[in-house]
């Protein structure tokens, strides 16, 4: 059963007096534990699509089901709860909270979103710190670590709630070549370990090369290619 199912999704923004159609009847399915990339030029609708999948926005038309939930029907609070339970986010600019340490940033979703018990919290955060190779940096603030380290922390934060799905918007855009590969490998490792689906929106050929399924967006319409992984855990409809 598909983790994500999109049928004839359209998204129209109104800018001033003009309607701009960011997505035009997009349909696709993504299976659990996929490594999927949405690519396309700027303005093609990648980020819009990620926002819809991430319950940060609602489609104008069509149905979008994520983890058996019609996300378009969720209200503001229910959306937040759904995101907290099912979705992890990795941002291009890392978006770590500057007042929290590395450890606390990773712990934040368990503490403030899911209310996980202290012992379990510590266990999960410590395990992920080790998994992303940041155990020795746990007490540093984000401004004391490098961009690559920040993104590793962001990956750990996205995974700490054991989400079904991680959405990453241009996750390697601000990283150098080696660091980008390291973060990509880390995400693949995490996918293998936790069975989490990773969906990227990217221009980065490194990510495109590593993705198992690639959806190409052009002018709000979708095409599908098999990626490097080749097992096709997603398909356009």
């Amino acid at each position: 059963m598909a983790l994500i199912s999109a049928k004839q999704i359209t998204k129209t923004y109104r800018v001033g007096e003009v309607d701009i159609q960011a997505l035009r009847g997009v349909s696709f399915e993504i299976e659990p534990a996929s490594f999927v990339s949405f690519i396309g030029p700027s303005g093609s609708g990648k980020t819009t699509l990620l926002n819809l999948i991430g319950c940060l926005d609602k489609p104008t038309e069509g149905t979008l089901t994520v983890a058996d939930t019609d996300v378009a029907a969720l209200d503001r609070r229910a959306s937040a709860e759904f995101r907290g339970k099912n979705i992890g986010f990795i941002f291009q600019d890392f978006n770590l909270l500057p007042v929290l340490t590395v450890y606390e940033n990773i712990e934040y979703p368990l503490l403030m979103v899911q209310k996980v018990a202290p012992v379990e919290r510590q266990k999960r955060v410590t395990a992920l710190l080790a998994a992303v190779g940041m155990a020795d940096q746990r007490d540093k603030k984000p401004d004391q670590i490098s961009g690559g380290q920040k993104q590793r922390v962001a990956v750990a934060r996205a995974l700490v709630t054991n989400p079904k799905l991680v959405l990453a918007d241009e996750p390697t855009a601000n990283l150098d070549h080696d660091t980008a590969y390291m973060v990509l490998n880390l995400m693949k490792k995490m996918r293998d370990e936790f069975n989490t689906t990773f969906i990227f929106s990217t221009h980065d050929p490194k990510i495109v090369g590593e993705a198992e399924t690639i959806f190409t967006l052009e002018d709000g319409k979708l095409n599908e290619d098999k990626g490097k992984g080749g097992n096709g855990h997603g398909k356009s409809l």
Binding site: G84, G88, F89, F91, L97, Y108, Q114
Partner: peptide, 16 residues
């Protein structure tokens, strides 16, 4: 504002 967007995106409820 961006921090607010981040914590809201990762599921922090509006009341919190």
């Amino acid at each position: 504002i961006r921090e607010i967007g981040t914590i809201a995106a990762i599921g922090t409820l509006p009341g919190k």
